[in-house]
Design a protein around this nucleic acid. Structure first.
Length: 212
DNA sequence: AATTTAGGCAACCGCCTGATG
DNA sequence: GCATCAGGCGGTTGCCTAAAT
């Protein structure tokens, strides 16, 4: 038995939101909150699926959303965090108040990725110069990298982080990163606003990396 | 001025995970 | 333990606009 996606239900509208729909959604959430996204459209009188409402609210209508160009600091933070976490946009967004995962993802694909490619990096998941440098400078062999993977998995298991979020590049990064790179990240640690989870990764992969 | 191309971004899709019965 | 549901996430698509020809 397969689940029918809510958006496939007949009569539900798709595509760009109108100002009127935005208004309805905002006022409904302001009044009642969004306890149940699936039930919300019906309650609010919107011909949209719950997912669509949630996305619209989170990515566009939330009052605390910061719009406009990314600052240099934000750019820098994204590059750093992507180098550590890979495409975990929501985790990266957690460290950039007011920015959404979708916005960061779009920014990455349209600006940063291109810039990195221009500078000669073409490793699929290698986001930053840092990672590129780490890979170029590494003196660790494959077995070291593999043991780093094990270390990462053990840490994740012990600390209860979601397993699906383990990103192979993280272990690779940890295994391959040079001491210079550790230093560079540490130097910038203070200038980046890190979420709780990022602090966690920072402690595991950066601080512990220096002592191993 | 008209057409084509490229860039940017909003929105959708499908999968995964955790919660619940 | 299993099935189902709802929420969340990342990948991808497609539309709109600006720039180039």
């Amino acid at each position: 038995m397969t689940r029918t996606p809510c958006c496939e239900r007949m009569g539900l509208k798709k595509g760009p939101w109108t100002a009127e729909e935005d208004q309805i959604l905002v006022s409904h959430i302001q009044q009642y909150g969004h306890g149940n996204w699936r039930a919300l459209p019906k309650q609010a009188g919107l011909l949209r699926c719950g997912k669509s409402c949630r996305l619209r609210w989170i990515n566009y209508l939330r009052p605390d959303i910061k719009r406009g160009k990314f600052s240099k600091e934000e750019e820098h933070t994204i590059l750093k965090l992507h180098g550590i976490l890979g495409n975990r946009w929501s985790a990266i967004a957690a460290s950039l108040p007011g920015r959404t995962d979708n916005e960061i993802k779009n920014f990455w694909h349209t600006h940063l990725k291109k810039r990195i490619q221009k500078s000669g990096v073409h490793n699929g998941n290698a986001s930053s110069r840092i990672l590129q440098e780490a890979q170029a400078n590494t003196s660790l062999d494959a077995s070291s990298a593999a043991s780093s993977t094990v270390t990462a998995n053990v840490m994740i298991a012990n600390y209860g982080l979601p397993v699906r979020n383990i990103n192979p590049p993280i272990a690779g990064f940890y295994g391959a990163v040079s001491s210079d790179t550790f230093g560079e990240i540490e130097d910038n640690h203070g200038s980046c606003q890190l979420s709780e989870e990022m602090e966690f990764w920072y402690n595991i992969f950066i601080k512990s990396g220096q002592t191993s």
